[in-house]
Each structure stands twice: as structure tokens, then as C-alpha cells.
Amino acid sequence: MGNAIEITKLCKQYTGFMLNNVSFNVPRGLCCGFVGPNGAGKTTTLKAILGMIHKDSGEIRVLGNPEGDAATKEKIGVMFDQPYFQEDWTPLNIETGLKPFYRNWDSNEYQKYLSRFGLDPQKRFKDFSRGMKMKLAMAVNLSYSAELLLLDEPTGGLDPVARDEMLDIMREYMINDDRTILFSTHITSDLERIADMIVYVSNGIVSFCGDKDELVSAHCVVRGGKLPEEKRKFAIGLREYSGGYECLMKVNDIGGLPAEAVTERATIDDVVVYMERGAKNA
């Protein structure tokens, strides 16, 4: 089905930070989790995809077109860590303002989502809770049948119930095979529940891009008394304490560990936590 997003050797330099040859593809029809520590470059990459910032070099193609292409944006739904609506706008105002931009806008669908999410059409945006605000943004995105959703921390700051509802909305959106989601998150349980693939970025570099299960099955958690010197270079996010050590290691690299070392199957949580620790220690 081709790729919804193709990023090749994307570079963007800021003072003290750089996106360094970021390359990854998100195939159509998949839900891709975009993970990495704070300041790793997730939001910068999302902004580059939308043409909100200008890349220094590299290539970005979104739904087959260059980034920032106005016509392509008609097929993209966007939600940053908070929806960008005026505080005094009501859901009806939002429809009035945004509907003319989208040929596919379906007012009935919008009303349906407002009703389903329990959003009062006359209530001002500022009077909604954070969870409601996020749902309103999703209602907007779903009302014009966006083919691609770019979501920056869609579940961040939500209580467990609201987070669960947001994930349900995302899951429901993905029922249609043509639809794609790229969402950044810090919440690894979200990845477990909804992501098909994962792109892990750290310090502006993509460390991993691939199938979620592949990522998990390729790593294991290793614990033991003393890590041999020759194996230290393979240890990811190594933590040493008085009684021993623990780290993440690629399954291919565990050969040669002492017999006392214990290996356990890694979870997504383990992989992300150890990778982030590794990035911090680097």
C-alpha cells in the first residue's frame, strides 16, 4: 500500500540540538508510536512533516507529496499536546471556522462525535477539561475523514479513563485499512495497546524503527552479579548497584554472559526505559 510518511536523512540544526539524518517510513494502514526522551526531536520531526519548520536538508514525503503541501493537509489530522483553538470558541464556532477548509467535512459526522464524546456544542473551549479538549480535536479530525493522523502526546496529562477513551478513538479510527497514525508518547502502555510499529528517537537520531513485536523480541533484560568488561559495550541503559547490575541487551549479544546472569524477556516498557537511560548516560 506504500508509505504514508517517508523521511530520508532529515537534518535540522538548532543551538544545542540537532535532528541528525533522521530516516524512517510509516507504511499506510499502520499505527506508529514515536517515542524518545524529552527533547529527543519528536515534536521537531512532526513540525517538519507539517512544514511548520524548514528542514536544513533531507527529504520528507507525506502521502506521496512534499511536506507542507496545502492540498495534502486536507487529508491530515493534527493534534499537538493541546488543541490550538481559541479559548472562547465553542464547538459550533470551530465548525464554522474550519469546515470551509475541508471538502470532505461532514457536519453530521461532527455532530455525531460531539454527541458521542459528550461535548456541549455551545460550551466554550476553555470550559472543557483537558480530556474533553483532546476529544474535541479528535472530533474535528474525524469529521473530514483524515487519512493520516499526526498526534503529539495525545494521551499526555489525561486521567486513566480519558486515556483509555482516547486510545479507543484511535483504535476505532484505524479500523479503516487506509488510515495511518503517527503519535508521539511517553506512555509505554499506549504503545503496547495500540502501536503496530515503533520509531525510537534519541538526541535527534533514530535508534530503532520497526515492528513493535520485533523490537521487543530482539531485546532482553539481563541481570547479574558482575558484567564482564567485554560485554559492557552491548549493555543498553546499564545500571550497576552494590549487589550487581541490570541492563537491556540485544538477544544476539547475550552469548558469552556468565552462567549466573539471568535473562528475561523484555517488555516495551523495559525497552523504552533502558534505551532512555542509555541515551541519558551516553
Partner: peptide, 18 residues
């Protein structure tokens, strides 16, 4: 004023307009 207050300029960048 409103552009920055509600970050409408970010919203504009997501709309299908150049």
C-alpha cells in the same frame, strides 16, 4: 494578539492553505 494567545498560528499551519 489572538494568534499567539490561542496559538492560532499553529492551527493555521495545520490547515490546507499555504
Amino acid at each position: 494578539v489572538t494568534e499567539e494567545k490561542g496559538q492560532l498560528n499553529h492551527l493555521y499551519m495545520t490547515l490546507p492553505v499555504n
